[in-house]
């Protein structure tokens, strides 16, 4: 595994975040994926060395979590939620059309290395079902057509806007975000979308008084 100076600094910074070094294990595995695209045996040895663990200890952890990939992922990694609610609301249909379009199945990668796809579990986006993620950036309320369009754009190198965050980068870039948690993109995406605002909107429509007493005057009155 090729480690450049920036990565080395990041490793140090990640370890320094924790009172005990072993806590850096999950973030470091994300960092390995940001460099290698998957958790390779080399990557495992590297992390083991950094944290003074045995490679078995690291591999044991790496194989427990589904986000750590053991084989090559595509440049873009696409997940379709097929847990009950999303599946019923269209996830199954989206999955099938995506899988047919790319000609690959669960946990497989296209021959050109562009895409890998995965049936994923509940993404905490049930209100936005069916939920699709591209490089873990959300692509809410997906349809076969919308997903197909995204694939075409990504192939063509055109920008694809995720629904909650930035323009899609690639799998490794997101893994890097997960490792270091600061990518300067926190301002991308809306504060909240219309579904997250559904309750607030309904309340406003019905003229229901805001219950927050944040206005300085009201705090005593309420007590």
């Amino acid at each position: 595994m090729e480690i450049d100076d920036t990565t080395r600094d990041e490793v140090r910074a990640i370890i320094a975040r924790y009172p005990e070094t072993r806590s850096a294990l999950l973030p470091l595995l994300h960092l390995v994926q940001s460099v290698e695209g998957s958790v390779t045996p080399d990557g495992i040895e590297f992390v083991a060395e950094q944290l003074e663990l045995t490679p078995a200890e690291v591999a044991s952890v790496a194989t427990f979590y589904t986000m750590y990939k053991r084989h090559r992922t595509g440049r873009h990694h696409i997940g379709v939620c097929t847990n009950s609610l999303c599946a019923l609301l269209g996830g199954d249909v989206v999955w099938k059309s995506l899988s047919d379009e790319l000609g690959i199945g669960h946990d497989e990668t296209t021959a050109d290395g562009e895409f890998s796809i995965e049936r994923i579990e509940c993404q905490a986006a049930c209100t936005h079902a069916p939920s699709v993620t591209i490089d873990w950036e959300y692509f809410d309320d997906a349809t076969p057509a919308s997903v197909s369009e995204v694939i075409a754009k990504l192939r063509a190198g055109e920008p694809v806007q995720s629904t909650r965050g930035p323009v899609i980068r690639d799998f490794r870039a997101t893994e890097h975000t997960l490792a270091v948690t600061d990518d300067g993109l926190a301002g991308e995406g809306p504060s909240a979308d219309h579904r997250m605002l559904a309750g607030l909107t309904a309340a406003k429509e019905r003229g229901m008084a805001l219950q927050d007493t944040a206005a300085p005057a009201s705090s005593e009155g309420e007590n």
Binding site: V58, A59, F64
Partner: peptide, 22 residues
């Protein structure tokens, strides 16, 4: 004090194993 074998994977796939070449 030799954590050279560990549990790998999870759920019903959980199994004892070693790291590659170790």
């Amino acid at each position: 004090g030799d954590p050279l074998i560990e549990l790998f994977e999870r759920g019903s796939k959980q199994q004892v194993g070693i790291a590659e070449d170790r």
